[in-house]
Amino acid sequence: MNITSIKAILLVFVSSTFLSCNGQVKNEQISTENKGTELGESVVQLDNKIWVIFQDSKKNYWFGSNGEGIFYLKGKDLKQITTKNGLADNTIRGVQEDKQGNIFIETANGISKYDGKSVTTLHPIVSAKNNWKLERNDLWFGYNANDVYRYDGESLYELKLPRQNLKKTFGIDTLVSPFNNNNPYSVYKVNKDKDGNIWFGTFVAGAFRYDGQSFIWFGENELSMLPNGVAPGVRSIIQDKDGFFWLSNFISKYKIEPNTLEYEKIKGIEKGEPKYFNSGVSDKNDDLWMTNYRGRVWKYDGKTLSEFEINNEVKDVLLITIYQDNNGIMWLGTANDGVYKSNGKSFEKFKPFD
């Protein structure tokens, strides 16, 4: 099998190459305006549109909605946190926790930080230096950035990915959508692999891997605009037990050669359907779990692709995310029917107070 040639470009990091559009550095870093006096208001149920699920180190759950803020479940106490409590926006796209136990909430209007007492908003530093670094405890955010944010514990930096000749590579005009500010490099997914490298999945500019010194660009057609005009985006990046990387599609998987740092493209799961997944995780056995928007869940153990049932009675479930909690339990977030939780054999609707 041939190693992919020119498309696997090793991009050695040179700071002068990656110039930000804004040369001035913003000194302000954390806004202290609109601090909430309490962590949300008590509610009895979750919103139907849950795009993000996260369990923190204290075993509490966070459920991020698509427009109604974030829901915080501590035992049997469920609270809804919104802009009234200092949240930057009520549309949630990610939740992370740092080593100090602070919670970072990725919204449509910036990054909010909850330190256990109040919610504040981080303001990015935009610098001509384009300060790319990779430290062990860094947090990375893609949504609402241009292209990506890195938080080092003190400051939030806005960074740009290295630009490529997308029209030449893909043979299409990648400025195809009014979404994502017409930026083909808008980051949909950030993921850290087993070796600590950071991966970025973009709107239509393929995928990038950054090891702290250099970039590898994955410029494959199935990672960009499709012939029918659809732009699936690289929304999920997972690594299997054999070290192969799956980039939002079942069509191909990728292996990085350790000596040349080029990538090898290999056939994925040889099956007519499905072709793409929008969310995926690797479980404690390194088996892969993937979902698509039309309500299908698969598990892939390296040999067999198995489909799991979703026990719903009312409507077709539109899946947004799959998440594995601290105990290895799988959860599903949906665009129209709240949250589902695995019982080991199938997925059932989750109700906080049942």
Rank of each mutant, 00 (worst) to 15 (best):
S127Q: 07
S112I: 08
K99D: 12
S118D: 10
N228I: 10
E158N: 15
S65W: 03
F350M: 13
T202D: 12
R235N: 08
K284W: 09
G69S: 01
N180R: 15
M225V: 10
Y61M: 07
T107H: 01
N137D: 15
G153D: 02
A205W: 05
D242Y: 04
L159F: 01
G86F: 01
I320T: 10
I92D: 12
G233N: 04
L166K: 01
T32G: 08
I30S: 08
S65F: 01
G243V: 00
E264K: 11
K284E: 12
R163S: 14
Y263E: 10
N292I: 04
D89M: 03
Y149T: 05
S31V: 02
F200L: 09
Y61P: 03
M225L: 10
W132V: 01
K341D: 10
I237R: 00
G69H: 01
T121I: 08
Y151K: 11
P274I: 01
V148R: 00
N197Q: 10
Y340F: 15
Y72E: 03
W217D: 01
F104H: 09
K129A: 11
S31K: 04
G94R: 10
T32K: 12
G272C: 03
P178R: 09
P232G: 07
T4Y: 09
K129W: 07
K49E: 15
F18R: 09
G75D: 07
R209E: 05
K345V: 10
K275W: 00
D242K: 09
D316F: 02
K133E: 14
S282V: 00
I329S: 13
G94W: 07
R209L: 08
N34R: 14
L161T: 03
I6W: 09
L223Q: 06
T37A: 08
S248M: 03
F215G: 08
K99E: 09
Q24P: 02
G142C: 05
I92Q: 11
K315E: 14
L261K: 13
I103Q: 10
C21R: 10
S186F: 13
D337K: 09
L156N: 02
D173R: 00
V339K: 02
T334G: 02
E220R: 08
Y210D: 08
I329V: 15
I92H: 11
N343G: 11
L19N: 13
Y293C: 02
L166S: 01
K303L: 07
Q24C: 13
L11T: 14
T82V: 04
K341P: 08
G75T: 03
V12S: 13
D316L: 06
K133M: 03
D152P: 02
S224A: 13
A108H: 00
S31G: 11
E154N: 12
E313R: 06
A335F: 10
K271Q: 15
V317L: 04
N146V: 07
Y340S: 01
L319A: 04
N109D: 14
V12C: 06
R150G: 07
D242H: 04
E68Y: 08
S5R: 12
Q96L: 13
D147Y: 02
D286A: 11
I256Y: 09
S5H: 09
V281R: 11
V339N: 05
A207D: 01
F347N: 07
F71K: 06
E220S: 11
L261Y: 11
Y185I: 00
Y114E: 03
E270L: 05
N34E: 11
E41C: 07
V25R: 13
P232S: 05
E273G: 01
P274F: 06
V14E: 15
K255C: 00
